[in-house]
Amino acid sequence: MPYDENRPAGDRSPAAAEEGLRRSAAFLVDEALGFVFPAALRAAADVGVADALADGPATPAELAAATGTDARNLYRVLRLLATRNVVAEDEHGRFTLTEAGQALRSDVPYSARSAVRMLTDRTFWRPAERMAHCLTEGTTAFDAVFGMPFFEHFAKDEETAAVFHVGMAAMSDAENAVIAAAYDFPDAGTVVDVGGGHGGLLLEVLRRNPALEGVLQDRAHVLAGHRLEGDKEVAGRWSTAEGDFFTTVPAGDVLLLKRITHDWDDEQCVTLLGNCRRALRPGGRILVLDAVVPRDDAPHQAKTLDLLMMASLTGRERTEADFVDLLDRAGLRLSRILRASAVLSVVEAVPA
């Protein structure tokens, strides 16, 4: 009988129980080796293998010459990536970038290369190794590894901060148009993208809603890389606002918080959401754009991201009940939840 890791052990004969334990051991060892795949994916992203495959099939030797790498070791990485359909090897030993692997290129729309490098950066990788610290101490492992909180570390390390902000922008690019289309924005007014990074979401919202104006709020060093400048579709309808959203939020009719609340603990989120409530104009709405963790055993990206939050930050992914409680504490009321993408939902809140 094929091994089913979800099947309860139950009452079985000694021989069946022993066989079950053998299969369990093999399954768990295979799962424990799972971390090697993202390491290989990052290595391929770092050296630009996908870009070298943009023109068609190539041998490891040809790819090594194009990327300045060792041909034998590059082949070993590609062989593992082929097991997950990122690349495919033909009968002549040449590798091709599959449809699933196309976004690893840096020169395509919705490139995920920067997102892959961010998610496998040491700021996530090293705390994840110390996840047991989160269980025994009840706190993030990041401080124990780096000696300071996550965002304080970024403020002191420009290179790491750049990896994070560029990676987050890349991770968001494929989501922004979908989210902008999923919500019925008002015919007029001001949309404020709170902690909006490089402004990819605000740009999509303004493009789809030509009567709206927008404000992009973030720290000065983040705003320096924003994308709003030079886009003719939104010209004259946007401004930037440098600031700390824990202190103040620009006034607006719709306030966007995309992948923000999951970074912070409940008390910090209550402060942030309270600032947003005070910044709302009459009839305004706050849109929390984050995952809503389903209450089942099915795989969901939010359940994986939740452990990254646990290991490296102070926040967490939240269930619907968690959002109801959080909003209530901030003087807000959950009005509805819209599924915006495979991962993210639109949690709409209004003043209570």
Rank of each mutant, 00 (worst) to 15 (best):
V145L: 06
V163M: 01
D157Q: 01
F164R: 04
R126S: 15
A155F: 03
F151I: 09
C134F: 03
G167A: 02
V163E: 04
A162Q: 08
M168Q: 07
L135W: 04
E158F: 05
E152W: 05
R130K: 13
P127H: 11
A128G: 13
A141R: 04
F151V: 10
A144L: 10
A161Q: 12
E158D: 06
A144N: 09
F124H: 15
H133M: 00
E137D: 00
T136P: 00
P149E: 08
G147M: 01
E129V: 12
A162Y: 11
A170E: 11
H153A: 09
R122V: 14
F142I: 08
A162I: 01
E129Y: 14
F164G: 04
T123C: 15
A169D: 06
M148E: 12
E137I: 00
G167L: 04
T160W: 08
F124N: 15
A128D: 15
E158G: 02
A128P: 14
E152L: 06
F150R: 07
F124M: 12
H153C: 07
M148N: 07
E158L: 03
T136L: 00
G138R: 00
T123S: 15
F124K: 13
M148K: 06
G167F: 07
R126H: 14
A155D: 05
F154H: 02
L135V: 01
F124Y: 15
A144C: 11
M131G: 06
T140F: 10
G167P: 04
M168V: 05
L135P: 01
H165I: 03
A132T: 02
V166I: 12
D157P: 01
C134A: 06
M148P: 06
F146N: 01
F146T: 00
E152Q: 11
V166D: 15
K156E: 14
F164I: 05
H153D: 12
A169K: 09
F151M: 11
H133L: 00
F150T: 04
E152V: 10
A170C: 11
E129P: 15
P149K: 08
M168G: 04
F124A: 12
F150C: 06
E152G: 10
G147Y: 03
A128K: 12
A144W: 10
P127N: 11
A144T: 12
L135Y: 03
T123Q: 15
L135H: 04
T139Y: 00
K156G: 10
A169W: 07
A144D: 15
V166H: 13
H133W: 02
T139Q: 01
D143L: 07
D143C: 08
T123H: 15
A141S: 07
T136G: 00
